[in-house]
C-alpha cells in the first residue's frame, strides 16, 4: 500500500534485511521489509515484543546498517540525514543526562556534533521550555522530575534541531494513563503545527490508533510487515478522532486481531 502525495516520501525502504552480529553468525531480525512513509505523516508501529520495532528505528537513525536492501530518508542515506540533524530520536527511558539540568539537557545538541549542523539558536531553548510546559523547571535535575516531565524534556531536546523526522521508541510506555493521554494530545498538536514526519513505536493499541494516520503492524520471527492499516477514513477532516469513536474502536479491534493472529 503506498501513499499518494505530491511531495517525495520521507522514508523509502526496499527489501530491507536487518540483523545483529551474534556468536556464530547473524541474528536476522527484519526480513524483506518494504515501507514508504509520506512526508509529514504520523506513522505508528506496533508488533509483538522482539519483532524488530526498535531495530527498524535504529536503521532509519543510522545507528545500525542494514544487512541488505536500500533505505532512503529524505532522499538521502540515513548517515547523511543524521549528519544534517534532520532526524531525532526519543527513547523510552528519556535518556536524560543526570548531571545536566533540564535546560542543559535540552541544549545538549548545541554542544556536541558539528555545531554548524545545529540550526537552532540558544534562544530556542526558552521557546521549547515554554512549548513543552517546562517553564520554571529549567534549573532542575532529572532526578527531581516526574516521568512525564522527563519525557517532555527528552522531546524538547529532540525538537531543538528542528528535525524533519522524529523517531519515537515507546516514549510514553512508562507513564500513567492520564499523563500519557495528555502527552498524546500535546504530541498531536505539535505534529499538526510543525508538519514533522513522526514514526512512533508503541505497545498500546489505543495509542497507535489515536495518534497514527496509519498503523504499521509487524509480525515476529522474522520481523516483517503484517499489515499497514490506513486510518485516514477513520479520522475526521482535521485528521483526528476520539478514542471512543465507533470507527476508531473498530480499527483498534482490527489491530488487536492482527497482533493476536501473528
Amino acid at each position: 500500500m503506498t501513499v499518494e502525495t505530491a511531495t517525495a516520501p520521507a522514508i523509502v525502504a526496499r527489501r530491507l534485511d536487518v540483523g545483529y552480529p551474534v556468536r556464530g553468525g547473524t541474528l536476522r531480525v527484519l526480513e524483506n521489509l518494504d515501507l514508504e512513509v509520506a512526508s509529514g505523516e504520523f506513522l505508528t508501529i506496533v508488533g509483538p515484543s522482539g519483532c524488530g520495532k526498535s531495530t527498524l528505528l535504529r536503521v532509519l537513525a543510522d545507528l545500525i546498517p542494514p544487512l541488505s536492501g536500500t533505505v532512503q530518508v529524505l532522499g538521502a542515506t540515513p548517515a547523511v540525514v543524521r549528519e544534517r540533524r534532520d532526524v531525532a530520536f526519543v527513547f523510552q527511558d528519556a535518556t536524560l543526562l543526570p548531571w545536566r539540568t533540564v535546560r542543559e539537557n535540552i541544549a545538549l545538541p548545541l554542544q556536541v556534533g558539528r555545531r554548524s549542523a545545529a540550526r537552532a539558536l540558544a534562544a530556542d531553548v526558552d521557546a521549547l521550555l515554554e512549548l513543552m510546559g517546562l517553564a520554571g523547571l529549567d534549573g532542575r535535575y532529572p532526578s527531581q522530575l516526574s516521568g512525564g516531565q522527563r519525557q517532555r524534556v527528552a522531546i524538547a531536546r529532540a525538537l531543538l534541531a528542528q528535525p524533519r523526522i522524529l523517531l519515537m521508541d515507546e516514549p510514553f510506555g512508562a507513564l500513567d494513563e492520564i499523563t500519557r493521554d495528555r502527552l498524546n494530545d500535546e504530541l498531536l498538536a505539535l505534529w499538526e503545527r510543525t508538519g514533522t514526519t513522526i514514526l512512533f513505536v508503541t505497545h498500546s493499541i489505543i495509542e497507535s490508533v489515536y495518534l497514527g494516520q496509519r498503523v504499521l503492524v509487524l509480525a515476529a520471527n522474522p520481523g516483517r510487515v503484517r499489515e499497514l492499516v490506513d486510518l485516514r477514513a477513520v479520522k475526521g477532516t482535521n485528521g483526528r478522532c476520539t478514542r471512543e469513536a465507533p470507527a476508531a474502536v473498530e480499527a483498534m479491534a482490527h489491530v488487536r486481531a492482527l497482533l493476536e493472529g501473528s
Partner: peptide
Amino acid sequence: PTENELELMRVLSASKLEIFRDLRLPRSI
C-alpha cells in the same frame, strides 16, 4: 554509559572526544 546514552550521542553525530567529555567522564565521577 548505557546503550541508549551512546545511541543518543551517535544520533547527535557526537565525536569520540565529545562523547568522552560529555558522557563518559561525567558518568565516571
